[in-house]
Simulated scan of single mutants.
Amino acid sequence: MKIHNFSAGPSILPQEVLKKASEAVIDFNNMGLSLLEISHRSKHFVDVMENARALALELLGLQGKGYQALFLQGGASMQFVMAAQNLLEKRAGYLNTGTWSTNAIKEAKIYGEIVEVASSKDAGFNYIPKGYSIPSNFDYFHCTSNNTIFGTQMHKFPKSPIPMVCDMSSDIFSRELDFSKFDLIYAGAQKNMGPAGTTLVVVKEDILGKVSRKMPAILNYQEHIAKESMYNTPPVYAVYTSMLTLEWLKNLGGIKAIEKVNEMKARVLYSEIDLNPLFKGYAAKDDRSMMNATFTLGNDKLKETFETMLKEAGISGLSGHRSVGGYRASMYNALPLDSVKALVEVMSELEAKA
Rank of each mutant, 00 (worst) to 15 (best):
L200G: 09
Y111V: 05
P216C: 07
L310W: 00
M347Q: 02
G325R: 09
A257R: 15
Y270R: 00
S242V: 04
L200I: 03
S77K: 13
P10D: 11
L70G: 02
S339T: 00
N96C: 07
A21D: 10
K159Y: 06
G254E: 05
K204Y: 06
A108E: 04
L200W: 06
E116F: 07
L252F: 09
S212A: 13
S101L: 05
K191W: 04
S319L: 11
I38N: 05
N30V: 07
L70Q: 14
F6L: 08
F182V: 02
L72H: 07
A334M: 10
A187S: 13
T144H: 12
M49K: 08
N147E: 15
A329T: 00
I149Q: 15
S169A: 15
T308V: 04
F182S: 12
M154A: 12
S39L: 10
V340M: 02
L184V: 01
P216E: 10
L278T: 01
L249R: 11
N96Q: 11
W100A: 15
V324A: 07
T296L: 06
K210I: 00
F45D: 06
I255F: 12
K280R: 12
E247T: 05
I273M: 04
S22D: 12
F28G: 11
T241Q: 15
H44W: 06
R328H: 03
N292W: 03
L200T: 02
K250H: 02
Y327V: 01
L36M: 15
A283W: 09
A189D: 09
G61S: 11
A226V: 01
L57R: 08
V115L: 14
E205G: 11
Y327N: 08
T296S: 11
I26R: 07
G325P: 02
I128G: 08
A342S: 07
L244V: 02
P135R: 14
K250V: 00
S339D: 03
T102P: 02
L337Q: 13
Y132N: 09
N232T: 14
G188Y: 03
V201S: 13
V340L: 01
F80I: 07
A56K: 04
V201C: 14
A118L: 11
V46Y: 10
L337H: 04
A24M: 11
Q79C: 13
D338S: 13
V48R: 09
E263F: 05
T198H: 08
V236H: 06
L33G: 03
